[in-house]
Design a protein around this nucleic acid. Structure first.
Lengths: 224, 224
DNA sequence: ATTTTTTGATACATTTTGATACAATAATAA
DNA sequence: TTATTATTGTATCAAAATGTATCAAAAAAT
């Protein structure tokens, strides 16, 4: 599944330049010269990133995005604009930017900023590694290290800890865990969770000094 | 619970300026004048964002980060640097930047870029937070802080206080509370409410000086 | 001021919950 | 296959949370 990027830019040569370079990087690019039918596209297709000029015929690009954001639009946006004064940049961020690049721009920098942003947003493409405090989970080799030391964990324990790191600081109740770690809740008892959690605790913190996973009575467990 | 940001900057006045502004925004800031002991901090504490100068005494900031990235460090990083040439910026991104700001910089823009980045990375920045005066209830981690201090409460007390904050200034009678907090009224006595309320009062205001919850004789209790 | 009602404090009882050890079963490797 | 390991279930115990009863204190009514 390739990464889809929508580019809205009214200067045709710039649009083409961007399309050319993004395509070369392996992205799937959909270019527009104005905002007409962009909204439709963003809603119907699953778009990973929107690159938006601000000075467009008719509409102001950032106002267009701001309106979408109000509707719950969460796709990351990079503004690409000749508006380079401080207050204009500030305005851009207030109107939902994730990054703001001023024209004239350096194509290489644009590509790098795109990459950095996608790394943060396109959740599952990234991360062979999950980290929390001195816990380090390597998803590809399925290994765990605690404070630099390798610790053997079972598949279940690995998945359990992943779930906690992905939801650090949130209390996860037993139903949620059975649903998401054991997938296929019904068949198990809530005690199963207790046992698994305690074994995991024992492995990652045998001296009980680090206190990674706390039990929240009557609710569940949390990593904090 | 609060967002923790580590800032590494060797110019003391700039560091102080950043610390001042970030703190004002409600972030928890930990400043360093050099990279000594930063790595330790990043591993042991759960840090949400690293702001890094590149020209540091001894070490080059981006090399420092690059080394960490190799170890599986995934926390977002913003470089703040006087190195503003295209190739230097590119180098910064290649060395693990999520954003790159050149000096001299606009503080407002820095704040906005931090916000944009955190929006993408630290999933739940104030979502499910209930607040009243200096009471702060975080539903996802089920924690309560009173005037900045963490206070342990039981499930019942947490739910009770939520109910009061959701209905601040209204008197809630015992039947209502039994119905909504204990859900499954009938079985309990109204005295149960008294006891629970008193225990809650004791925890959130042991000196009885804040007077959060008032009893309304013959009716119930209210938070005001 | 006296009585009555309501509320609060305390101690104690009960219930719920979770930790732990261990047994049983399932999965995997030899 | 058997042996080994991982996972799940059960039972027991301890601890924590919550509820109840009692009585004293405060407020309201008379």
């Amino acid at each position: 599944m390739s990464v889809k990027i929508v580019v809205v830019e009214d200067e045709e040569d710039i649009l083409e330049l961007i399309e050319y370079n993004l395509t070369k990087e392996g992205y799937e690019v959909i270019g527009f010269l104005n905002t007409k039918s962009v909204a439709q596209m963003l809603i119907e297709e699953s778009i990973d990133l929107l690159i938006m000029d601000r000075n467009l015929p008719g509409v102001e690009g950032s106002e267009f995005v701001q309106a979408l954001r109000k509707e719950g639009f969460v796709t990351p946006v990079i503004y690409l604009s000749a508006k380079s004064q401080d207050f204009e940049i500030e305005e851009g961020f207030l109107r939902g930017a994730d990054d703001y690049i001023t024209k004239p721009f350096n194509m290489k920098e644009l590509l790098l900023r795109i990459k950095a942003l996608l790394r943060r947003t396109s959740k599952k493409v990234e991360e062979g590694v999950l980290a929390y405090r001195d816990l380090l989970l390597d998803k590809s080799s399925r290994t765990l290290s605690v404070d630099g030391e390798n610790v053997d964990v079972t598949k279940l324990e690995f998945n359990l800890l992943s779930e906690f790191i992905l939801n650090k600081n949130s209390v996860l109740d037993r139903d949620y865990l059975l649903e998401n770690v054991w997938d296929g809740a019904e068949e198990y008892q809530y005690k199963t969770v207790n046992v698994a959690i305690n074994r995991l605790k024992e492995k990652i913190d045998p001296t009980k000094s680090k206190n990674y996973i706390q039990t929240v009575r009557g609710v569940g467990y949390k990593l904090c």
